[in-house]
């Protein structure tokens, strides 16, 4: 059996809290630790924020689809938009040793998920797939 939940939110930052609430519940259902849920929640929030900022350039009138799947291997999140295509090669955060605003989000996504991949088959917009494999008991 595969458990999955999909929501579609308007591309307005006020709906990010709805996504975070759902991540928390899905994380609990997948028996993640509280620390892991916090990391995953922040990572999904950052990925959706990036859609609003870069794919939709702040246009709040678009849609973002977020799907959560609990699998045997772990936890998957797919985030889809119909905005400007991301160039994965240009997605690089600032060095964590640099002190400047911005560039932290991608690091927060990468620390929570083992796989971060844009689906190249998607013609218009972006489909970002994030996978977090199950951890051991004391690993977050």
């Amino acid at each position: 059996m595969m458990d999955s939940v999909k929501i579609t939110i308007p591309s307005h930052p006020k709906y990010l809290s709805v996504v975070r609430a759902l991540v928390s519940r899905m994380g609990e259902l997948s028996e993640m630790s509280e620390a892991s849920i916090d990391k995953v929640k922040l990572a999904v929030d950052e990925a959706c924020s990036n859609v609003i900022k870069y794919a939709y350039k702040g246009d709040a009138g678009k849609r973002i689809a977020v799907e959560f799947r609990i699998t045997q291997e772990g936890f998957e999140v797919t985030i889809e938009d119909s905005g400007i295509k991301a160039n994965p090669e240009l997605i690089e955060g600032r060095s964590l040793d640099e002190v400047k605003p911005g560039g932290l989000g991608i690091h927060l996504i990468k620390r929570a998920f083992d796989v971060l991949a844009f689906d190249e088959r998607k013609k218009k917009g972006n489909r970002l797939r994030l996978i977090r494999y199950k951890r051991g008991d004391n690993e977050d």
Binding site: R20, L42, D45, E46, S49, V99, K100, P101, G102, L104, G105, L108
Partner: peptide
């Protein structure tokens, strides 16, 4: 109860 990278960036800007 929660902060994301935009919040962190805001404090960095304030500090600068």
């Amino acid at each position: 109860s929660y902060i994301d990278s935009s919040g962190i960036a805001t404090f960095v800007e304030g500090l600068k």
